[in-house]
């Protein structure tokens, strides 16, 4: 990787990471997006897209361990994809290097939140002084500065790291790549399970199977299933409104029925 590429990669990743926080998590820093971005900078966008997809699946599986900061899959994706492309490899290598790198990212995320803890005393003072300009400056500064150590580490890994192990790609045996490829396919099940845990409800579980059948048997594209889902939701909404209107009339009709049976 050239120095220019390493600098560009560091800056773009820093800006995306900042923007993700600053614009209320608009999903511009998920593996699915970072993969192609790295790929474009390193001149191999298609491998970038594929690495991004594999990392997205892989890191979905490892998030959400209650209470602790999860390994940082975004940093993992960036480093994993960059190394995979430099080594002339694909998603399999990206996922493995990405997993290791996600722990580096986790450390720097922890560090950045620690760096912000010192702010509270300053905020108290600015409030006492009624200095709103200083409060605004602090908010801006606090959003960007703590990210710089992580960016510096990224740069070192991009530039010197790839220089060091860039040539190792040729030594990876085929069965290792096949094995990781198989693992990505299995891990998908775990990723979906993590999501199901968040949204599962016994009453609605049938829709999970409906989605599966529409896709596996009728081969409807995801966006088609989504459109069908929206139609279905609208239908349910209408039915609910109708039931409610009927419920409002209920007391009188119930009384009528009683009269009928009393005869």
């Amino acid at each position: 990787m050239s120095l220019l590429q390493a600098v560009l990669l560091t800056v773009v990743v820093l800006v995306l990471g900042w923007a993700e926080m600053w614009f209320a998590f608009p999903m511009i820093c998920s593996p699915l997006v970072l993969g192609p971005v790295v790929g474009l900078i390193l001149g191999d966008p298609v491998t970038g897209v594929l690495c991004g997809a594999a990392c997205q699946i892989f890191f979905l599986a490892s998030v959400g361990l209650g209470g602790t900061t999860p390994p940082d899959g975004n940093t993992g994706t960036v480093l994993g994809t960059a190394f995979a492309i430099v080594m002339g490899q694909g998603p399999e290598v990206a996922v493995v290097i990405g997993t290791l790198a996600s722990y580096i990212g986790q450390f720097f995320f922890y560090l950045s939140t620690q760096l912000k803890s010192g702010d509270n005393r300053k905020i108290e003072r600015y409030i006492r002084e009624g200095n709103d300009k200083a409060l605004i400056r602090l908010h801006w500064r606090s959003a960007l500065l703590p990210m710089l150590p992580g960016a510096a580490a990224n740069f070192i890994l991009f530039y010197f790291g790839t220089m060091f192990i860039g040539g190792w790609g040729a030594y990876i045996p085929d069965w290792v790549i096949t094995g990781i490829h198989v693992a990505i396919g299995i891990v998908g099940a775990l990723s979906i399970a993590q999501f199901l845990r968040m949204i599962w409800s016994k009453e609605l579980a049938v829709y999970f199977f409906l989605g599966f059948l529409l896709s596996a048997f009728l081969h409807i594209a995801p966006i088609g299933v989504l459109a069908l889902g929206l139609v279905l939701v609208y239908f349910l909404y209408q039915r609910e409104q109708r039931d409610k209107a009927q419920a409002a009339l209920e007391p009188s009709s119930a009384a009528g029925e009683e009269d009928l049976f009393n005869d």
């Binding site: 699946i57 198989v182 396919g185 299995i186 998908g188 099940a189 990723s191 979906i192 999501f195 199901l196 949204i199 599962w200 409800s201 609605l204 579980a205 829709y207 999970f208 199977f209 409906l210 989605g211 599966f212 059948l213 529409l214 896709s215 596996a216 995801p222 299933v225 989504l226 069908l228 889902g229 929206l230 279905l232 939701v233 349910l236 909404y237 609910e240 409610k244």
Partner: peptide, 28 residues
């Protein structure tokens, strides 16, 4: 009941998509 309905509708859509995902990304 709008809040409950929005929650339910979102869950239905997400479960449908989880089903799609299950048929597409998992392989052995």
């Amino acid at each position: 009941g709008v809040i409950d309905f929005v929650k339910k509708a979102a869950t239905i859509l997400a479960l449908l998509m989880a089903g799609v995902l299950a048929s597409r990304i998992v392989r052995l």
